[in-house]
Write a protein that binds this DNA or RNA. Sequence first.
DNA 1: CTTGACTTTCTTACAGCATAAGATGACACT
DNA 2: AGTGTCATCTTATGCTGTAAGAAAGTCAAG
Lengths: 226, 226
Amino acid sequence: MTVAQRGRKREAARRGPGKRAGMSRQQVLDAALGLVDRDGLKGLTMRSLGEELGVEAMTLYHYVPNKDALLDGLVEQVFTAATPALDGAADWRTALHTYATALRAGLLRHPAVLPLAISRPAATPATLDEVEALLGLLTEAGFPLGRALNMLNSLAVFVIGHATAEARIVVGADEAGGADWIAAQAGGRYPLLVRAATDGAGTDDAERFAFALDALLLGFEALRPE
Amino acid sequence: MTVAQRGRKREAARRGPGKRAGMSRQQVLDAALGLVDRDGLKGLTMRSLGEELGVEAMTLYHYVPNKDALLDGLVEQVFTAATPALDGAADWRTALHTYATALRAGLLRHPAVLPLAISRPAATPATLDEVEALLGLLTEAGFPLGRALNMLNSLAVFVIGHATAEARIVVGADEAGGADWIAAQAGGRYPLLVRAATDGAGTDDAERFAFALDALLLGFEALRPE
DNA sequence: CTTGACTTTCTTACAGCATAAGATGACACT
DNA sequence: AGTGTCATCTTATGCTGTAAGAAAGTCAAG
């Protein structure tokens, strides 16, 4: 589509049927992720991905049963890369804090994939390892198993949700929802909102995340049995 | 609610150009929401929506500039309906609790729309009123304005994220991620996860939401200045 | 060295999608 | 009666995912 795309595309070298391009599912996923990062979700079509790899679109169906599976693979990919390695023993509070912070950072490296992430469960070996380890820490600390699981799930939802909200991926993005807009909506009806918008108060994403994360973990602590 | 929503499609009565069908943006949105509730996001096409309303697809472009705007309208619709009316003075804790609980319930009435909701900001009059009121409560309680805004945003993200995760809208849904699956993945590698899965521990969505909400609000309280 | 199965790729084709452009008729004013 | 504006339909275009099958390479067995 763009100049950049033409630059990146492999020289297609007019291959006939039978001539192998030598690909793997992993390469397909990598290329797809790159494409999504560059052109957004809408930029990922079987045709464009094929072009990226110097291959016809239908060839991809040999590595992936259909496009939905490709998207699932993308999410899996992102999660695996974003899941931090937990280095041994720490108290559960700092472990969860580290986990959440690293996960957020990792997810924000591929913002366009996030809308897919919330509705698709990603159970990769990496995440399972992580969850198991964290469950160990939490149960040791006195949380019942079910509650510990709830905590981890909530934390994951929390991080993914925040990351998704931060990366406002509005496809047809042409919004103008600033202070002026709010003020125009109804003059004196929203004094606090207008003040906040003009101040720029409460707009720092990282700060909001840090604050809310602290609050959540503090709340978990407060609700700990014993 | 409307005729279309009840599933009774209008008889298309072969209308010529110029013959009015007498519609409104609101009717279009209502029909679209009904269609999405019934057939899912993929079931909503301009053609199907037109058929639902007894009208050609292109006619819809008179009420909506393009499909993306239609989707935005859908989100707006759902949020407006889901935003609870806040009845006057209460302490901020219970106000936020009520707000979050009602919002979750409202959102879950249209699960298929939720994947759209996280990435699309919905600033409707109803939500603005609500936010302004809650901001009032929070600043009165001693929270700085920026922090109060952060709290509300985080709470919204929290609720939307939870609701979206609850309504697992995997389009090509054919997962089997139960205890057996986890066990099969790696025999004794995930003892806690397997135990949780077989127990069914930590699987109640409503309970998880209630618990995490309590934790978050408790954390907010703990981080309150003064 | 030939044969035949299997794998990977390409080719062609189709139905469905959003939507651009413009024709058509009906109503509200003048 | 004439004119303009609005709501609708008609037609057409270039996308999309993917089904079906042909072609060419690789490889194992006879």
